[in-house]
Design a protein around this nucleic acid. Structure first.
Lengths: 237, 237
DNA sequence: GGGCCGCACGTTGTATCCAATCAAGGAGGA
DNA sequence: TCCTCCTTGATTGGATACAACGTGCGGCCC
């Protein structure tokens, strides 16, 4: 995103894509919800052409599912797919954090510590999600790598909704371990110990994946749209 | 691709995307080459609208670089970006092969062995590239995973050109080790030894990456287009 | 009464036309 | 002679209008 996003569309398509992406990430549109082109066109004051460009951009981001001659839905993941995403993240994010650490300045590291503390103190779920996202993405900001960075960014976006659902589930519960891991990560980063940061991060992601597997109900169909919207693409093979 | 490809465009956009993708992968269009929308429209007998859809699909695949209000070019990688792709592959393909092995039937494994042998016997570069691609992708076909499979598929596509350039470079040279690794991989797969397959595959990809780093001239600008087309996106930050 | 066929509606896909943007070339001045 | 600005051409981006496809409802036949 970020870097490559700027130069994507003339202007309208990119604007619609950015706004719609934001709307999906904040939960305004739920997974499985039908998206009609004319609705978006009216909402953003444009014709259907740039809307379709935006939908394709978001499809590439994994936030929207398109079916030819039928329509678009907010992407949804099955439990198996979400698990898969987490396994991918377990492999890629350690690589990214290791290449990022040498590029992180003292100021950034202090900010990371602030974020970890702030997260621990807060109680609001939405605030936690926002801070958590900022924390991790900031920890990757030292990497110059465009491709890997964008890829990880996409993975975060596609799993955003399920992170929210899970966080809401254990709201007020014992998620102290999350904050401990964050502080451990900051410590490893401050020590410029890439290997240790990798270890902590693997555990962090893996633990979340195992927790998610305990809650298959998060992936049930909520009947928000008419057609399942992905959920099982295998029937097309 | 494959699975999700079918349901992408009404029909024209998908057709153009598929044909253009094929043209890029076979080397008909070189990295950095300018792509004009009207040329494609004329070539495929359609208007510019589905052409733009196709370009966006291929941009998501990493095969095309779009710049707003300016144009499209066949994507090119810098040495650093290519290295990055290979580091990503080193992490993801072992994961994929491990999940694929339990799903591979005896017939598929025999076919893998055939391919490894056929590659060893052949001398034509294009034939080698085709067989190598078929070999590896077939070795991943046991995985039901849609997301990881498609992702790896994309990684193969974006690095295809540089695999070709490198293979041409050492044409006739001592690439025996490649074939040895392929046979080792088949052996591990036949033994249903996921861990061993992971090890061999990591070495296989890593060795290629190290070789590529010795040949930065493969990434020089060949002057095929007017504007660099990516090559350094950092100036946009 | 149940299942199948067909028509009509809504939505998406494509073509054509017009506007906006960028790049290159030339004219003018320092 | 070189730099700058402007103009012109080519190419892309967006809007409107039309065609194609899929879906759902109603009627008809079994």
């Amino acid at each position: 995103m970020s870097a490559t996003e700027v130069l994507r569309e003339g202007v309208t398509g990119a604007r619609i894509a950015a706004e719609l992406r934001s709307a999906i990430l904040t939960g305004e549109y739920a997974p499985g919800a039908r998206i009609r082109q004319e609705d978006l066109a009216a909402r953003y004051g444009a014709s259907r052409v740039p809307v379709r460009e935006a939908l394709r951009i978001l499809e590439a981001d994994g936030l929207v599912t398109l079916v030819a001659n039928t329509g678009a839905w907010v992407a949804r993941l099955s439990l198996a797919e979400c698990e898969e995403m987490y396994r991918i993240r377990e492999k890629l994010e350690p690589l990214l954090i290791a290449t990022s650490i040498p590029g992180l300045g003292d100021q950034t590291i202090r900010r990371l510590e602030e974020l970890a503390t702030e997260m621990e103190a807060g109680t609001d779920v939405e605030a936690f999600l926002r801070l958590d996202r900022e924390f991790h993405l900031l920890s990757y900001s030292g990497a110059e790598t465009t491709l890997l960075g964008d890829l990880v960014h996409r993975l975060w976006n596609t799993t955003q909704h399920y992170r929210r659902a899970y966080t809401l589930l254990l709201d007020g519960g014992s998620n102290r371990i999350v904050h401990d891991e964050h502080h451990l990560l900051v410590t490893a980063i401050a020590a410029h110990d890439g290997e240790d940061a990798e270890r902590v991060l693997i555990g962090h992601i893996r633990r979340t994946r195992l927790q998610l597997e305990l809650h298959p109900e998060l992936f049930d169909d909520l009947g928000t749209g008419r057609t399942p919207a992905s959920q099982n693409r295998k029937d097309l093979l």
